[in-house]
């Protein structure tokens, strides 16, 4: 499929969905068809309308109030991502190279990863306050494990032949780390990066939602508190666009760093 055609189809999906939403929330079904009164298929009180959501979003950007909240969420996401990814890479490498350490900590790592992160949010708020750090901590607990497991796997699954060849070519342990283990782990890190970025944002927004004074999660929570459905949807719209932009950035970095991969593998599902 050519790029313009693909783009056209993607836009068409959005147009059809928004059109259905628009019609459903603005055109009443005449009285007597489904009930005695004329009713909306999608009641605007519960579903708002596309125009109201766009108008709200536009006003937020035009007045500039949203920028501050967007900036706070972005900062939390970036911090959570960087801290979690660096920690995951370092500890993943350490565990993969030290079998004893990995064997001892294995059950604890699994237990910690199985814990639902939402229950940690109040604890982090208690420890770190209502500022950005409690949200960063929540994001880190999500990002860390994704990156950690992928680096661990990536280092473990280096082809034994490639490894033996590198040894025979005269590489020392440190050179193996740099020329074989690291590039091999990098492919796994990148395959997890898209997920990891998403989770960093989830951590930030959920943290804000549960208790904060700024950020997109805070905005959505405030809107929900007063049954402002347009405000909630507007917050979700901004979040969605935000995620797509970040993901495109990750893809661009990935394509640069992993140019050596066969195209079929490089294409994400």
């Amino acid at each position: 499929m050519t790029r313009p055609k693909l783009l056209a189809l993607r836009v068409a999906v959005a147009v059809v969905l928004i059109a259905m939403w628009h019609v459903g929330s603005t055109v009443r079904i005449p009285a007597g068809v489904v009930s005695a009164k004329a009713v909306f298929p999608l009641d605007p009180f519960f579903f708002s309308t596309p125009l109201a959501v766009f108008e709200r979003t536009w006003r937020d950007f035009a007045s500039g109030v949203i920028w501050y909240h967007l900036g706070v969420t972005l900062l939390e996401t970036v911090l959570a991502f960087v801290i979690g990814a660096v920690g995951g890479v370092l500890i993943g490498f350490w565990f993969a190279r030290q079998h004893t350490v990995a064997a001892v900590f294995d059950p604890y790592v699994k237990a910690a990863n199985a814990l639902p992160r939402v229950v940690l949010a109040p604890i982090f708020a208690l420890w770190l306050g209502l500022g950005i750090w409690s949200k960063v901590a929540l994001g880190v607990t999500l990002v860390f494990f994704i990156v950690f497991f992928n680096v661990y796997q990536g280092v473990k699954e280096v082809s034994p032949t490639v490894l033996a060849n590198a040894r025979m070519l005269g590489m020392s342990e440190r050179q193996l780390l740099r020329h074989v283990y690291w590039p091999s782990a990098l492919t796994w890190v990148f395959s997890s990066l898209h997920t990891a970025v998403g989770f960093a944002l989830v951590g930030a927004v959920v943290g804000e939602y549960l208790g904060s004074a700024a950020g997109l999660g805070y905005r959505i929570q405030q809107a929900e508190g007063v049954f402002d459905v347009a405000g909630v949807f507007s917050g979700m719209l901004v979040l969605a666009v935000f995620v797509i932009l970040i993901d495109a950035g990750v893809s661009a970095i990935e394509n640069r760093l992993l140019a050596w991969r066969p195209a079929a593998v490089a294409e994400r599902p």
Binding site: S159, T161, V162, N165, M168, H179, V180, P183, L258, W260
Partner: peptide
């Protein structure tokens, strides 16, 4: 330890896939 005076051509693909 390893035989430092030998070169080894493996049966399976042994090139580093991330290098030209």
């Amino acid at each position: 330890g390893l035989n430092r005076r030998a070169g080894y051509l493996f049966q399976a693909d042994a090139l580093l896939p991330w290098r030209t």
